[in-house]
Design a protein around this nucleic acid. Structure first.
Length: 246
DNA sequence: CGGCGACCAGAAAG
DNA sequence: GCTTTCTGGTCGCC
């Protein structure tokens, strides 16, 4: 059932005129709302010429901002360039004494000397490429946050990522995490840590959204401590998606 | 009704 | 309890 209503085109960046009549966009569950946020003052630095319409995604202990960062044309171009520049490896993950190939391809880029450890496997960051620097700087411009590292996940429709939090030891839980999506739009699901599993302690509806081509999702504290997120399999989607997590 | 996809529960070793 | 992934079941839709 395709009822992810979190879409909103940035039409020529003329955004101050016809705001849609309803201020709140309904999600699957009635309690979850997204509020359109006026993109004035603090969220948008002056040098960004086309203000971005941010959507606030909020629930108990969940605080995210979502926006289309790149136009379709620019996102297309970035996608093509990354296809040429980025070298992926299929990493393995070790759990319970067994070794699996993780169900997606990965690459890590960042400042010199940085490393990233994922379930027992360590990888070092490759030097930034021009396109990655460009994207990183675009994210910095719109968020005011600087980043020293990016994890790139490449997924076909069969590829996916199970429920997890970004809680690697290298990460400061107070730092917001920026996630840029290019390519096929994919569903993205948040689930509260107390509402997982069979005999969960609480009944909290999951928050579902769709990450569009060229979009930026900001996960602010304490989202990443209280909420797990996943990217479920979508067998009907054959186009790949590139995700950059800063 | 058959087949497929989505989703959930369970299992795996420490 | 917590980890990450795969597998097998069920349910619902086409």
């Amino acid at each position: 059932m395709e009822k992810f209503v979190v879409r909103r085109q940035r039409k020529g960046s003329c955004d101050n005129d016809a705001r849609s009549p309803q201020k709140k966009v309904k999600l699957e569950s009635d309690e979850r709302v997204m509020e359109e946020v006026e993109e004035d003052d603090h969220t948008t630095p002056a040098e960004f010429s086309h203000p971005i319409p941010w959507q606030k995604i909020e629930a108990e202990g969940l605080d995210c901002d979502y926006a289309l960062l790149f136009s379709k044309e620019e996102a297309d171009q970035l996608f093509r360039k990354l296809e040429q520049e980025v070298v992926y490896t299929t990493s393995k993950v070790q759990l319970f004494g067994k070794v699996y190939n993780i169900p997606r391809k990965q690459a890590t880029y960042g400042d010199a000397g940085l490393t990233y450890t994922y379930s027992g496997f360590k990888r070092s960051a490759c030097p930034w490429t021009p396109t990655l620097e460009y994207i990183r700087d675009a994210v910095t411009k719109t968020t005011g946050q600087t980043f020293n590292f990016v994890l790139i996940n490449y997924k076909d429709g069969q590829d996916h990522m199970g429920e997890h939090r970004d809680d690697e030891k290298e990460l400061d839980p107070l730092c917001p995490i920026a996630s840029v999506s290019l390519g096929a739009a994919r569903d993205f699901i948040f689930r509260h840590r107390d509402a997982r599993g069979k005999e969960s302690r609480r009944q909290i509806e999951p928050v579902k959204l769709e990450l569009a081509h060229g979009s930026l999702l900001l996960m602010n504290s304490p989202t990443n401590t209280l909420w797990y997120h996943s990217l479920p399999v979508r067998k009907k989607i054959s186009q790949p998606r590139i995700n950059l997590t800063f």
